[in-house]
Amino acid sequence: MSRPVLLHSDTLLSYSFGPDHPMGPDRVRLALELADYLGIMELFDICVPLPQHRAQVRRIHDPDYLEALGQLVPHPRYGWGTEDNPLAAGIHEVALDIAAASTTAAQLVWEGQCTRAVNIAGGLHHAQRNGISGFCMLNDAASAIDWLLEHGAQRVAYLDVDAHHGDGVEQMFWDDPRVLTISVHESGLYLFPGTGFAGDIGGPQALGTAVNVALEKNISDQEWLRAVHGIIPPLLQRFRPQIIISQHGADPHRADPLTHMELSVNAMEMTARSVRRWADRYAQGRWVALGGGGYQRDSVARTWASLLAAVAGVVIDMATPMPAGWDSVVHRHGVVPTSTTLGDSWADLSGIDPTEVIGGQRCQAMVATSKAVFPYWGIAAYHG
């Protein structure tokens, strides 16, 4: 395979937590429909998850927890059967396939069958070693990273730009110097899971390899882009990853019902293109992109269609009109469309050059993170 690969199968969409639950497979379905309308899907080879990779989760999750998940009865100890994580027929099998899909993507890229792969059904970054957390049952990103380490990788970078802290992935590799985890998120002072502060920098054998940018509420495109581009590239340059795995939750968007950020689809699209550029510059082009959070169906579809374009290596005009009938499509999911175009008309990214560290006033979170982590890498910290 020389073209980018999309990991997908109908089984990844065969679950439901109920009509009122924010998490649902329609998020992925709508994104793929929009990408198809934009002509992006034809740029990908489609690959189904390799079934043998379902077993990879045994290396990162406790056996008792995995056994309990296979039983459709409440398990309060593991968070299974709660309002956030309700009992759902077949969800255990779907979770195994999502983890297998991300691990398959990692294998395809690592073994050179393609340089870029994407699983937008993945990015379930809250799942813990011994429990469900934040709608996440099995940690597909951690499964993919573990497979890479098992097969010879010595430097894996995990980038997480979801509105929520990527706590599950961070904790699983907290004391492993082979894995650099960078999470840019809304501060845990305001948002689940309440973790991921600047001083959280990794275990004693891996100090400086856990990086957390805990942003204030209502952060703007410009502030967010400055933090992302000011923290991530200097660390990648020093770490020299052999592969990048990134999680692209769409919930930093202004319209998301569960978060308090003010981002546009345009800013998240710009960041996706930056991650591709960083993969080319620092990781021999090797990049696995995952989905994640995001609960306003219209903005999620637009964000992930833009992510697919970035993985495919094409730039789609953000002023491209949405397809005819899109209003009716998203209305069926109880959502009011937030834009008539792929991007947000209110977004103004003029004058921002993502190929450089963005100048201007640096936010407090960016400064705090640089002071906590940069010294371990021989990088000068920022000042406000």
Rank of each mutant, 00 (worst) to 15 (best):
V73Y: 00
M41Q: 13
N119P: 00
D140F: 04
S133C: 14
A121R: 10
G131A: 14
I60N: 02
E33T: 12
G131N: 07
V109Y: 14
L38A: 10
L50V: 13
F135Q: 00
N119I: 02
V73P: 00
A100R: 04
R59H: 12
H53Q: 05
E33N: 13
G70E: 12
L72A: 01
L32N: 09
A31H: 03
N119M: 02
H75C: 04
Y65R: 07
G70M: 12
Q107A: 13
G131S: 10
L30I: 11
T103N: 02
L124Q: 13
A35L: 10
W80P: 00
P63G: 09
F135R: 00
D97L: 08
G79S: 03
L69W: 03
L69E: 08
N130H: 11
T82F: 02
A89E: 14
S133K: 12
G79L: 01
P76V: 03
R77A: 12
L138C: 01
I60K: 02
W110G: 06
L43T: 08
I60E: 05
Y37T: 12
G90K: 03
V57P: 09
G81P: 04
D97Y: 03
A99H: 07
H125I: 11
W80T: 00
L38V: 11
V118G: 03
C136T: 08
P51S: 10
T82H: 02
A35Q: 12
A101M: 07
G134S: 06
D64V: 08
G81E: 01
A100C: 07
H61N: 05
L69P: 01
P86T: 02
W80M: 02
E42H: 11
R59P: 00
Y37I: 04
L34F: 03
L66G: 09
I120K: 06
I40G: 08
H125Q: 12
H75F: 11
G90Q: 01
R58A: 14
Y78P: 01
L124T: 13
T104L: 09
A89Q: 12
G112Q: 06
G81K: 01
R29F: 12
G70R: 15
Y37A: 12
V48R: 15
L124K: 13
R54Q: 13
G90W: 02
P76F: 03
C114W: 10
L72V: 00
T103Q: 02
A100K: 02
M137Y: 15
L43M: 14
C114E: 08
G81T: 04
A127H: 06
I120C: 04
R58G: 11
L38Q: 09
Y37F: 14
L50M: 15
T104R: 11
A68D: 13
L30Y: 11
G90C: 05
I120R: 04
H126W: 05
A101K: 06
Y78N: 02
L66F: 11
H61C: 05
V57Y: 07
V94M: 08
L43G: 04
Y65M: 05
H53Y: 15
G123Q: 06
V57G: 05
P63Q: 09
G112I: 05
E83F: 14
R27G: 10
N85K: 00
V48Q: 14
V109F: 15
A106W: 13
H92R: 09
I46P: 01
L50G: 14
